[in-house]
Every structure is written in C-alpha cells, then in structure tokens.
Design a protein around this nucleic acid. Structure first.
Length: 264
DNA sequence: ATGCCTTATTTCATAAGA
C-alpha cells in the first residue's frame, strides 16, 4: 500500500496540482489537510474520475481534512468521536481529523493546530488537541493492528527537522511541550516512517512562501506518516516529493509518501 | 531585528498560516 499525506493549502486552488500528482505518484491512500472547503463543496467527481473514494471533514475557509482511497473506504468518522467534550469553554469545533478504514488499515488524516505563539491561548489549544488525539487513539484504535496517523502535525520532532535550530528557540513547532505532546501520541504505538527509511537525512516538507525560503533550503519537517508497529516492519520505501513544491501555484508543503507491505 | 507570500472572506483590508 502506498500512503501519502499532503497539506494542500486550499484544494480549490490546488486541485490541478493534486490531480497531476496523483497521476504520477499513484497513491493508494492520500490524506490531505487544509482543503479549506465545506463538505458540500468538495470536488468528489474529480477524485472519482481518478478511481478514488473520499471522506472529507470540512466547514470551509479554515482547516478541512480528507482521505482519498482507491483501496476501500469504510467506517468514516469525522472529528474525534461523536460526543467528544469541547477542549475549552466556547470551543468552535474545528475540522482537523477524519478517520476511515482503507484496505486493512485504519487511517487518520490530521491537521494539528498551529499554536501561533508560545504565550498564545492557541498554543494551549494545540497542546490540548494533541491530548485529545491520544485519547482518540486510546478509545477507538488498537495499536496491535494496522494503524496510520498522518498529516500536518505542526511540530518538528527533532532539531534536525528544522533548517536552523538556533532560529527556533522561542517559537512554536519546536518547543519541549509540543514535542512531548507528539511523543505521547507516538508512545501509544506509532513510529515515524520517514525516520525508518532516512535515519540521518535532513529533509523538509514545508517551506514558507516568503523570501525564497524553498530555494534557500529554509524548511521544516512537520508532515509525518506515523505507523503502528505491525506496519513498521513492512515499510519498504518512501520519500518527500520536493518536486511537488516547485512550479506553478504550489502548496507551501510537499507530499510525503510511504510504501508499506501490509500483513494479511 | 523584521518582513518578504498565499489564501479566503463579512474583500480594496484583515486574519491566518508556521
């Protein structure tokens, strides 16, 4: 199974690039984030034409996550669970996770809140959201089975996952609490598939649009494919498709794809 | 030291991203 994750930064704008990419990357499952679409506006026909079923959780304007699959799409769940209590008083439920069973694998597409700044209430929300993700896994998934949680985690797991750690001292995406929150999710029973394939490499999945950051190599690795132990043994190949960040109207993120021999 | 760009919308200005 070839599974991929891509923060598309508006599927309205990016649909031609996504269609092109599906054409040559041929993912079995493509998780997308920041579709910025309402469910009613999702371009289902474009994906059906390519042989994919899609589960989408979106309210328009902000956020929005999707799973496109050509190996089946069952038991779709939008959000954490039907009756997840709000993370804080007055929370507007945001569209940041959708789950589905594709083939024999339970897949989640996640878009972790940005956090904005260490002193921001949005940072506290980010940490709370991570905790809710862990609880979601605890209550709805089995770590002994085939599980993939992929998406834009808005956390660089280690210093080597940012272009210059010195410049990430007092900002989000690299702080200890954020990394601990990500680790708590991984401790449920998930490993970073990219690091299985590339133990040392410093490769990135996001580059700011500004200041030529992409061509200067000023990036971060914040888009992750986390796989359960049962699947980790079957990870055979993968890459971050840096070419998809080039050219006309690119997303600011590149897709990450991973090939897995899924045990029967 | 900071912004640089891109997107969507309650659009010709603002919010958000990371």
């Amino acid at each position: 199974m070839r599974i991929a994750t891509w923060n598309v930064n508006s599927l309205n704008v990016r649909l031609p690039r996504v269609e092109e990419w599906i054409g040559y990357a041929q993912p079995d499952v493509l998780c997308m984030q920041e579709t910025k679409l309402a469910d009613t506006a999702f371009p289902h026909m474009a994906f059906e034409a390519l042989g994919y079923e899609v589960a989408h959780n979106g309210a328009g304007r902000w956020n929005g996550v999707a799973i496109a699959s050509r190996v089946g799409l069952a038991d779709v769940v939008s959000g954490f669970m039907g009756d997840t209590p709000p993370l804080f008083d007055g929370e507007v439920q945001e569209s940041r996770i959708v789950s589905a069973t594709c083939g024999d694998v339970r897949v989640a597409s996640v878009y972790v809140p940005n956090g904005r700044a260490l002193e921001s209430e949005h940072y506290q929300y980010k940490l709370a959201w991570f905790k809710a993700l862990r609880e979601h896994l605890d209550t709805t998934c089995d770590p002994a089975k085939g599980v993939v949680v992929c998406g834009d985690f808005n956390v660089a797991p280690e210093d080597r996952d940012v272009w210059d750690p010195k410049r990430f001292m007092k900002v989000t995406h690299t702080s200890k609490p954020e990394r601990a929150a990500l680790e708590a999710v991984q401790e449920w029973g998930l490993v970073d598939a990219f690091r299985l394939l590339y133990p040392q490499e410093r490769l990135f999945s996001y580059w700011d649009y500004r200041a030529g950051d992409f061509h200067q190599g000023r990036g971060m690795r914040i888009d992750l494919v986390l796989v359960s132990q049962a699947l980790a043994k079957g990870v055979t190949w993968g890459l971050i498709d840096r070419n998809a960040r080039k050219g006309k109207l690119p997303s600011d993120h590149a897709p990450v794809l991973i090939d897995i021999d899924v045990p029967a």
